[in-house]
Each structure stands twice: as structure tokens, then as C-alpha cells.
Amino acid sequence: MPSMRDSNGRCAHMLAAGLVQSAIGTLPKPLQHFGHALYSPVANGQDINVAHALVWLTVDLGECTAKRKEVAYWMALAAIKSHQAAVNGREAWGPGRVVEFVHDWYGTKVSVSHWARDWAAIWAAIASTVDTLDAKALKPVAAVIVKMAERRVFGTSRWDLYDREHVADLRAEAYAARRDASRSALHARLNAMGTEQLRRWFRRMNAYGAAYRREWGSDTQENPGRHLVYSDRISEYWSQRQRVGDVTKRVA
């Protein structure tokens, strides 16, 4: 209902927030902290520490001396800060800012003039690792955003755009494996129904058949193997109507 307090907007926001939080909850704990460190306005020290450790334990620096690894360790934290700036619309850090950060945090001076020779490859490896971890952390959230965006236009959904025929084929394969048993069970259930029960079932089948034909159209004839459930139900529908002739006369 429209209201001056925008209750619809608040409900939609809470729904979206709940879906995003649920998606984040599916991530491993270290990736959750990594995502919080980059995107959460209330990220804490634990988030930063876990994110830093995750980057450091994930990155492959190849052959590297102990002293260079010490500097690279703090470059990993600088890379997180740089990526955080980039995702928030600011400029990513350049060599000068990274060198300044390492000196402030660790007290080691790194020559900017020798950056391309000594540190560019290490920084590129660390930054690439941060990008990869960021993509992993955002994957379930991105899936939620895509689904929500598709449903902004009435009548469109992921089912229509991507999965429709694939899922229908999978369902058809699963049904084919149990088809005989399913048809026998449906036949036995309908034979046990009384006249009034069958009338109600006929009405439901009419609505089901109309909706199914609207959705699939000529595909029901062009790819009959995909629609075995539908065809078996329709066949049983006509079989039951012929079995009880008095119902046939009364039910459209």
C-alpha cells in the first residue's frame, strides 16, 4: 500500500539487505571478513587483520628473499587499502603512496626510482590476488543483485532469461526415470476419487493446462520429450472424463 512513510521502500530495502546478508553468510569466514574490510562501513580491526592474512597466505610471490618478503607483507595491507579506495570511487594507490605506507607502518624505505625493477612484479601479484579474492567474496552477492534486477520488470526473471529450457530438460530426465510409477500412482489416486473430488481435479487441470500452454506454446509439440509430465496428466484427464460420463456432461 502506498504511504507517506514509504513503507514499501523500507520493506524492499530490508528484503534486499536480508538477501545480501544471507548470501554473505554462505561464504567461508575469511572471505566474509575480507568483504567486510573492503565494503562494510563498520569494518573493524578483526576484518582488516583477517583480510591481510588471507591475502598474504594466498599470494604467490615466487622466489623472494626474506627481506623482500617482509616488505611485501606490508604491501599486502597497502594493496587492500588501495583496492578499498578504488571500489569506493577514489584513485588506486601509486608507487609513491605504497612506499609511504610501508615506511609509516614498518619503517623500511623503498626506492620509488627502482620500483619497476624491484617491486612492480610483487605489487602486481599482490594486487591480482586481492582482485581474485574480491571476485570470490562478491560472487554470491552479485547473484542476488542480478536476480533482483531481473525482477524489476514484470514478467522477466532468471528462469525466462537463462535457465528455462535447461531446467525443463533436467526435470524431464528425472521424470522419465520414474514415469511408469508416477503414472500408475496418479491413475490409482484418481480412480479412488468420488465424483465431486474429480470435478475439483478437472477444474484444476483445466487451469493447469491453460497456464502450461501459455508458457510453452508450440514447444509442447516440437519437443514432446521435455513435456512428459504435462502430456501424461492431460492423457489421464481425458481418460477419467471418459470413465465417468456423467461428469463429462457437467464439467466444461
Rank of each mutant, 00 (worst) to 15 (best):
F202G: 09
S184V: 10
T248A: 14
D134Q: 00
N49G: 04
T156R: 09
K81G: 02
A174C: 09
K147F: 15
K29F: 05
A72V: 03
L190M: 08
V146Q: 11
E215L: 07
A135H: 06
M148K: 15
R178H: 14
E100R: 06
W74C: 03
A51F: 06
A210K: 07
V251D: 14
R97S: 03
A149H: 09
E215V: 09
Q240F: 14
S111K: 13
N44T: 10
Y237G: 10
A12E: 11
A181Q: 11
Y208I: 09
N88F: 01
E196P: 09
A181S: 14
N49E: 15
V102I: 05
W74M: 13
A127Y: 04
A135L: 04
R179I: 02
F101R: 01
E150W: 08
G18C: 08
H187Q: 15
A72L: 03
R179H: 03
L133N: 03
A53H: 06
V167Q: 11
R200I: 12
S184H: 10
L31E: 01
V247Q: 11
D60W: 15
G45R: 10
W93D: 00
M75E: 06
V110N: 02
N88I: 01
A121F: 06
H114K: 14
M14N: 08
A12D: 03
K139L: 12
R171V: 03
I126A: 11
A53N: 12
R243W: 07
V244A: 13
F154R: 10
G89T: 02
R226D: 04
E173Y: 13
R179P: 04
F101H: 04
L27T: 01
W119P: 09
V141L: 00
K249C: 08
L198G: 08
A174S: 10
G217P: 05
T58N: 06
W238K: 12
G107D: 06
M1P: 12
I24G: 00
N8S: 09
S113L: 09
K109D: 13
P30H: 09
G155K: 07
D118M: 11
V87C: 02
A78R: 00
S128Q: 12
S3T: 14
A78I: 00
C64A: 14
W93R: 00
E215P: 05
R226G: 05
Y162I: 14
D134H: 00
R5V: 11
E236Y: 04
